[in-house]
Structure formats: C-alpha cells, structure tokens
Computed example of a mutant assay.
Amino acid sequence: MGQTLQIERANQLKNKPDVSTIKFGTVFTDYMFTSRYTPEYGWSEHSIIPYQNLQLSPSCQAIHYGQSVFEGLKAYKNGDDVLVFRPDQNFKRMNQSLSRLSMPEINEENALDALLELLKVERDWVPDGEGQSLYIRPFVFADEPFLGVRPSESYQFNIILSPVASYYGNQLNPSSLYVEDDFVRSVRGGVGFAKASGNYAASLLAQKKANELGYEQVLWLDGVEQKYVEEVGSMNIFFVRDNELVTPKLNGSILPGITRKSLIELAEYKGYTVKEESIHIDDLANDLHSGRITEVFGAGTAAVISPVGRLNIHGVDHIVNDNQIGPVSQDLYDHFTDIQYGRREDPFGWVVKL
C-alpha cells in the first residue's frame, strides 16, 4: 500500500443500534477500508468508503482455491478515548498467514495507519456499554478471475467494523467442551498456525456434532497421533494445574493467539508460573479426575476468557470446579479487561489510544 488514503463520504449514515440487543457479527458500521493488489502497482487504491457489497467474478480464485485469510481484534471506549488492543500484533500475524498461503504481504505500518484513520471516522460507533466493544475484521482474499491452481495475481484487503456485546452473552458462565476423536483440525506442516478461512470450514462438522451432543465447543487433538491437546474451535486453551498455568505449546498446527500471548505475559507479570508443554489427553483426563487441574478456560479475541465447566473426554464427562469460574480465571479476566478498557495501568504498552 502507498501513503495516500482517499475517503469517500456516505450520502446517509445508519442509525446506531442498541448493542445489547444485537447478535455478534450481524451489524456493521457506515464505512470500511479497502485496498487492492496487482503485480504492477502492489498494494494501492486504498480508501475508506461506505460499507458496501463486494463485486466479484464467479471465477474469483478465493472461491475456488481458498486463498483467504483474516484477523480479529477490538476497539474499546474509555470516556472520550477509543482504545485499540495490540493491533500491531494482528497485522504481524496476518503477514505470517499471507506468507503461508503464498499471498502478498501487507505493509504493517501502513495497515495500522489505515485502521486508525478508519476508527477516527467511525469513533461514534464504538459502544460504551458494559462488556461492549467494536469488533474489527481485517481480511485479504484472492480475486483474480482464473480457474487455475496457482497463486492469484490480484487481491483485495478490506477492514470492516461491527459493534458487539460479549461473544457468549454472559461469557464468565462456564461453557462445555467436547474432545473430538475422529476429525482433526490441522497437522504440522499445514496451515493450522495461519488464520486461514478454510481452517474454520474444516471445523464446522465437528462443531455441529458437539452441539448435537450438548456441548458448546470442540477441543481439538493433534492431527498426527490424536493424543495431544491443541486448541478449541475459536480459542486457545489453558489449564490451572497444581496452581500453575499450563497451555499447549505452539507446534505449527496451533494458532498463535494474541490473547494467548498476552495472557501468558500478564500472568508472568502477576507472578504466576506459566508452562507451555505438550499435554497428552490421557494425562489431562487423569489430572481432571484427581483434582490436580482445578480450572480450565479458553482464551481468544472474541471471548477474551471463557471458563470451562464441563469437558467430555472419550465419552466421559469431567466437571471442572463445580461448573463455576475459578479464582485464577477471574483474576486474569479482570486484570486483562481492565487494561483493554483503560481502567487499569497498561505496563506493557499494548493499548493504542485515539
């Protein structure tokens, strides 16, 4: 992308919704950011334009061959200020995803500048209710009209915004997980570490199965031996074991979550012992049964922290902490969200203020 950012004003603005009543990801703001890549000009034509449908050829390569990646982050309201949580990390991870899918990388600094300009235009859309935020969805996809298995020669980069309440309603009400024994999400050497759209399509059948069995989310095992814990469908996973915080180590098939990374840094700052290791599913079952594991929670941008109260492993239900949120989960959630919303000092330099 170059340096010039054009702004096209909308003829009419939308009425702001009551965010407490809308479903996550269904309402969008007045404007969006857009940019286009061609071999001749690189990333160019970047603009802030009224939110609108995209025009695509039926032979668009993203539809046929899946070159599509995205990110997710949030902006928060604190008085008159708008706060954005670690946006630089999202654009850094986006480039890792783009590289893996043989797509052209973006200029991270220019992308961040474009996002901040878009948020300045849309700052009135950032809600200020309890637990509310403005969800930010950057995404890049191949749009060349060509039916051939090779990297596309043209791409679009867009950013759209959506005001949201909490992802799970009362997100501190413990959720339930089903350990998937048949399907796998990804394998090392694949695209599991990338935020590739196809990863989520691959998870949907198992998610449907879990829901039909009465569970809210899938806990995935590794794709080679199907013995080691990896991640939940929309979150990384953490365990409190012997008063230490434990999470599966990154191995190439686990998404390197920014909330995951931030929680590890925050926990260590607060004096917790944090371990990243391979976690065998049988050891997890034994530690839940014996009481060594006292808390389980998921961590991700949309949910922040989602405690787990029930975990099905090989058909056996394990109840965690009497299906209540635990003290470590609550402590980390409170401190983490206080930083995000500007209620507490940010010693890490994570928050960008507008």
Rank of each mutant, 00 (worst) to 15 (best):
K227C: 07
Y228V: 00
Y228S: 05
E230T: 15
V232A: 13
V232P: 02
V232N: 01
G233Y: 00
N236S: 05
N236G: 02
I237K: 03
F239E: 01
F239Q: 07
V240P: 00
V240E: 06
R241A: 09
D242C: 07
N243Y: 07
E244K: 15
E244Q: 15
L245D: 03
V246R: 01
V246Q: 04
T247R: 00
T247I: 04
L250I: 11
N251W: 04
G252V: 11
G252L: 13
G252M: 10
G252Q: 11
S253L: 07
I254V: 10
L255C: 07
G257R: 00
T259C: 06
R260W: 05
R260D: 00
R260P: 01
R260A: 00
K261S: 09
S262K: 05
L263M: 08
L263V: 10
I264Y: 00
E265Q: 09
E265G: 03
A267L: 01
E268I: 00
Y269G: 03
Y269E: 13
G271A: 13
G271Y: 10
G271I: 14
G271S: 09
T273Y: 06
V274T: 12
K275A: 06
K275F: 08
I279R: 04
H280F: 06
I281D: 06
I281C: 06
D282N: 14
D283G: 05
L284K: 08
L284Y: 12
N286V: 11
N286Q: 15
D287P: 02
L288W: 12
S290I: 09
G291Q: 12
R292A: 14
R292F: 10
I293F: 09
E295D: 10
E295R: 05
V296A: 09
V296K: 05
F297A: 11
G298V: 07
G298R: 04
A299E: 00
A299K: 02
A299Q: 04
G300S: 12
G300K: 02
A302T: 08
A303C: 15
V304Q: 03
I305G: 03
S306W: 08
P307G: 11
G309K: 09
N312G: 09
I313N: 02
I313L: 12
H314L: 14
G315F: 13
G315Q: 13
G315E: 12
V316D: 11
D317N: 15
D317A: 09
I319T: 15
I319N: 12
I319S: 12
I319A: 07
N321L: 06
N323S: 14
